[in-house]
């Protein structure tokens, strides 16, 4: 009776293997995403768009405000400095094994009223990282930047 038995391995029953046949996905960054990544690659700056009505600066930029639907088409350089809103210290990898070195990930704000950017922290230890830490982006050299979120290597403490 299959109902009453507890299988230790799912391969104990006759089975078929399958996979998702989709080879890969091709994502576009969109109108605002394109502006963001080109500026990061070519000028080494982080762009945002601001909704004056709602007082929100979207980082990375968006072409619309999600609260009032205003069209946002003026890109502003928000600078490379930000502040840690929250962080986590990752100690286990996806395989469940301990990482050689803990990795620190954070949500970073670029001044008040901005949306947060998820990124990695560097040049900081689990003992010294804290909420409210002032940080700055460390960019790859221009020749190595390809217009990716990883053109920012990490954020490190300032001051």
């Amino acid at each position: 009776m299959t109902f009453s038995e507890k299988f230790q391995k799912t391969t104990d029953v006759k089975h078929w293997l399958g996979d998702m046949e989709v080879d890969h996905f091709l994502y576009t960054a969109g109108i605002a995403g394109e502006a963001f990544f080109v500026a990061l690659r070519d000028k080494g700056v982080i762009l945002g768009t601001r909704c004056e009505l709602c007082g929100i600066t979207y980082v990375p930029p968006r072409i619309y405000c999600e609260h009032c639907f205003a069209e946002l088409n003026e890109y502003t350089d928000v600078g490379l400095r930000g502040r840690v809103r929250s962080f986590t210290i990752a100690r286990l990898g996806k395989d469940g094994n301990e990482l050689k070195k803990p990795e620190i990930f954070a949500v970073i704000d670029f001044g008040s009223g901005t949306t947060g950017l998820l990124h990695k922290l560097g040049e900081v230890t689990p003992e010294t990282v804290k909420v409210g830490l002032d940080v700055e982006a460390v960019l790859k050299p221009k020749s190595q930047r390809g217009g990716h979120i990883t053109d920012i290597e990490y954020f490190r403490p300032v001051g």
Partner: peptide
């Protein structure tokens, strides 16, 4: 066949037109 806009951006464009 392929638009540069993200799904979110397309959604906003259509929704804004309707509004």
């Amino acid at each position: 066949r392929r638009l540069q806009e993200t799904g979110k951006e397309m959604s906003w464009q259509a929704a804004q037109m309707a509004l």
